[in-house]
Design a protein around this nucleic acid. Structure first.
Length: 238
DNA sequence: GCTAAATGTTGAT
DNA sequence: TCAACCTTTAGCT
């Protein structure tokens, strides 16, 4: 365990210790080391983890954390959070997170109790990590489109079966994302194809498609700012 | 070579 | 509601 950039203080403490497990809760990633010690990582907007097989290269100056063995090394760059924590800090962190659709034990009803009494728009609730953990701007936009939901509907106006369907689709989309290592929201019949090759821009229905025609109805996709984040939607389908 | 933008969160106002 | 923060890259000149 090293910190070429020098800003991960605990590197010396963990160097040579056993890495026992890795975990993810929503967007929070953890390396568990022996002795109830975790490295807590949040990638924020532009953090990246790159794992490479040896031969080891010289790390860039910006590498906050490097883990290396004889066979491989992995570099963390650009993350706003990378710190060693103990069981108490970890527990506090997890208490503040809503259910994560990727975790088998997650209970969507926990989210529902908050949604059902909120006057916030469902688009804002989906991005709130205390309500649902792991959903970001792309999944929010796409899952709302796929459910045909207006993003501005208040949480308390959302029917419970509507929420359950949304949750199931989130699980499906997020699991597919893990499998493919990228987000693909469009169903095959809605992907434009050129010479049989899928294009990168085929992956979403609404995210990043401002003023482009909706893949389903042709209406121009709209974009607005909601609580400091860009929100995309089809005013006709949703 | 410069600037803006990007799948996010926090803390101050 | 807004700025600050972390870094890289695309799109300009």
């Amino acid at each position: 365990v090293t910190s070429p950039q020098g800003r991960f203080d605990a590197a010396a403490l963990l160097d040579g210790e056993l890495l026992e497990d890795t975990e993810a809760f929503g967007k929070h990633l953890m390396y568990r080391f022996s002795g109830e010690r975790w490295v807590h990582i949040h990638l924020g907007l532009f953090g990246k983890i790159r794992t490479v097989h040896t031969p080891v290269d010289t790390p860039r100056e910006t590498v906050r954390l490097r883990l290396s063995t004889d066979q491989w090394f992995t570099d963390l760059v650009g993350a706003p959070r990378c710190a060693m924590i103990g069981p108490d800090e970890r527990a506090t962190l997890l208490e503040r997170l809503g259910p994560d659709p990727l975790r088998p034990e997650a209970d969507p009803h926990e989210a529902w109790t908050r949604i059902a009494r909120s006057r916030q728009p469902v688009a804002a609730l989906l991005m709130n990590q205390q309500v649902v953990a792991g959903v970001g701007n792309v999944f929010r936009a796409e899952v709302l489109f796929r459910s045909g939901l207006n993003p501005f509907v208040e949480g308390r106006a959302l029917p419970q079966d509507g929420w359950n369907a949304l949750w199931e689709d989130l699980r499906r989309l997020m699991r597919a994302g893990v499998r493919a290592n990228r987000i693909v929201s469009t169903r095959p019949e809605h992907r434009e194809r050129r010479r049989g090759r899928a294009r990168r821009s085929d992956a979403t229905y609404v995210y990043g498609r401002t003023d482009e025609p909706c893949r389903v109805c042709g209406t121009l996709i709209r974009r607005t700012d909601l609580m400091g984040r860009r929100l995309y939607w089809c005013p006709s389908c949703q």
